[in-house]
């Protein structure tokens, strides 16, 4: 068990932090939601009722979708775009999808390469882009979920203020949906851009996200 925890420390720690912060969001969310209800002359709702509301679902999904968009864009953009001096970037001459030899595919596959690499054909082509594709699929799924849950939450608010509910398509072109979406996208783009450029001049000793401390600013890539 200790060996399992040690070997998966990074994923398990963030998984635990995710659960803890989601619980925190539920408690803070119901308190905020009830403040609004009381101000509108309505009875407060329980925590259980709040975490099974479309309002909670929309709040969760609108943040998830932007994270997966960020990773999808970053994974594909870093194949083609470089940032001189960044630990997040490849060196300029490695731009693009690189050779089969560098990527260990085709006749350069190794005995212990993943099965779909050794299989060749469409399976290797698909597997070669699987990380980006899964991030794209998760972005599209979470964005759709955020739209559906946001629609439910929006219509509940419409009914609370005695206004007409909107259709799903109506919600997709409504300012509420785009405000929820874009306020999350903008923060992700800023964070990614900051990471790309800050890692040129700043260091974190021992982190694989940083170049080694003594590496010159002009050196690009993980190895410095």
């Amino acid at each position: 068990m200790r060996r399992f925890l040690f070997r998966n420390g990074l994923s398990l720690s963030f998984g635990a932090l995710f659960v803890a912060t989601l619980v925190g969001q539920a408690f803070a969310g119901v308190a905020d939601f009830n403040d609004n209800r009381v101000a509108n002359g309505l009875d407060p709702i329980s925590l259980g009722r709040f975490v099974t509301s479309s309002n909670f679902g929309a709040d969760v999904m609108e943040n998830w979708q932007s994270e997966y968009l960020q990773f999808f864009l970053y994974i594909f953009a870093t194949v083609w775009l470089i940032q001189l001096g960044s630990s997040e970037s490849k060196e300029a001459h490695k731009r693009g999808t690189e050779s089969d030899e560098e990527q260990k595919v085709g006749k350069y596959a190794q005995a212990d390469s993943p099965a779909w690499v050794k299989a060749g054909g469409w399976r290797t082509t698909l597997y070669s882009r699987s990380l980006g594709f899964v991030m794209l699929a998760l972005f599209l799924l979470t964005w759709t979920a955020s739209a559906v849950a946001g629609w439910g939450a929006f219509n509940n608010e419409q009914l609370m203020s005695h206004e007409d509910p909107v259709t799903f398509v109506g919600y997709l072109v409504h300012a509420d949906f785009w405000n929820r979406t874009l306020q999350n996208w903008q923060s992700e783009m800023l964070a990614v851009g900051s990471m790309a450029i800050f890692s040129v001049y700043l260091r974190q000793r021992g982190s694989p996200e940083s170049k080694p401390v003594g590496t010159p600013h002009k050196d690009t890539g993980q190895t410095g």
Partner: peptide, 30 residues
Amino acid sequence: MKGVRAVYVLYLVMILFGIGYCTALGLLGR
């Protein structure tokens, strides 16, 4: 690598459950 694969599957299940759960809340109009 068995333990690592278990964590990988756990993440996928957690994410897909979250997506399904939140979509259902919206569809039910809760």
